[in-house]
Simulated scan of single mutants.
Amino acid sequence: MSVIDLSHPIRTGMTVFPGDPEVRVEPALSIAEAGVSVLSVELGSHTGTHIDAPSHTVEGGATIDAVDLGRLIGPARVVDVSGLPPRTRISVDDVREALREVGPGDIVLFRTGWSARFDEPGYADHPFLDAGIASALLDAGVTVVGVDALNPDETVADDPAPALPFHDVFLGAGGLIIENLTGLDRVTARAPRFVGLPLPIAGGDGAPLRAVIIED
């Protein structure tokens, strides 16, 4: 069995979505002074590799602690859309052939290759998914989608309330969105098992999660 970690380490100063809380990890107690080592960790609910619950964009939507964890364990389908220029809109036609193979219970992960730019200035200039892809996935019975980028929608840094059409469609239908994955280029199996378990934040609109691929 091979386990591939798809999660970015949480560290001080790491990339966050524009306007989100900055991440700070620092010593709170030390073995020398208190006999134990304890860190103080300050972060937002959408830090690093994380999952968006419907309540992230939908008023009254399900919160992360109400999500059935069984939905986050299942066969993964990696859709390769790497090699595109910055801010390319990816249409349904671009991935139609790949989506023919997906069905209910599949967890569809889009590989843009942008995770290689994590913590670099251009990370927010990632390619993004047209909302039509959200509709196509839902029509196929897919309710969990992930991207190795900051956002499945276009990231507009200077807009305090950006349009999020992919989020609106997918979360609006009760779907779950995983963002900031990494390591999708290491996945070689056709339909390996995905496991991604979020922190059970009470009433949370999202949460960091440890995402892995298991290849037998």
Rank of each mutant, 00 (worst) to 15 (best):
I90W: 04
R77N: 13
V95K: 08
G74L: 06
P104R: 15
V95L: 07
S91I: 04
F118N: 11
S135C: 07
R96K: 10
G113V: 00
G132W: 15
A131L: 15
A124Y: 15
E97T: 08
L99G: 00
A136G: 07
D130T: 01
R117M: 08
E97A: 14
G70P: 09
E97S: 15
R71D: 03
R100M: 15
V95F: 11
G105M: 03
A116Q: 14
L138A: 01
V78H: 12
A76W: 07
P127L: 11
S135L: 02
F118R: 12
S82A: 14
E101D: 12
P121S: 07
P127R: 14
L69F: 05
P75A: 13
A76T: 08
D80P: 05
L72P: 01
T88C: 00
E120P: 08
V67C: 03
V108A: 02
A136F: 02
V108H: 05
P86E: 07
R77C: 11
A136E: 14
V144C: 03
H126R: 13
G122K: 04
R117P: 05
D80Q: 06
G132D: 13
G83S: 05
D93M: 14
V142Y: 05
V108P: 05
R89T: 11
A140M: 06
L129R: 13
T112D: 02
A134K: 03
E120T: 13
F110N: 07
D68L: 02
V78T: 04
V81R: 10
G132H: 12
V95E: 01
L69V: 10
V102R: 02
A140F: 03
G70Y: 03
S135E: 15
R111Q: 14
G113Y: 03
E97N: 13
R77F: 11
P121Q: 03
L99W: 05
D119C: 04
G83P: 04
R96Q: 10
R71Q: 14
L99D: 01
D93I: 12
S135F: 02
P85H: 01
R77G: 11
R89P: 04
A76V: 08
V67A: 09
G132P: 12
D68G: 06
A76K: 10
Y123D: 12
V142N: 07
V81L: 12
S91Y: 09
D80F: 00
D80E: 02
H126I: 09
G141M: 11
P104E: 11
A116H: 12
R71P: 09
G83Q: 08
P75Y: 13
L129H: 05
D139L: 12
D106L: 09
F110T: 02
V108Q: 08
D93Q: 15
R111V: 09
G132A: 06
T88N: 01
V108G: 05
I73P: 02
G141N: 07
R96S: 10
H126M: 14
P85K: 00
P85L: 01
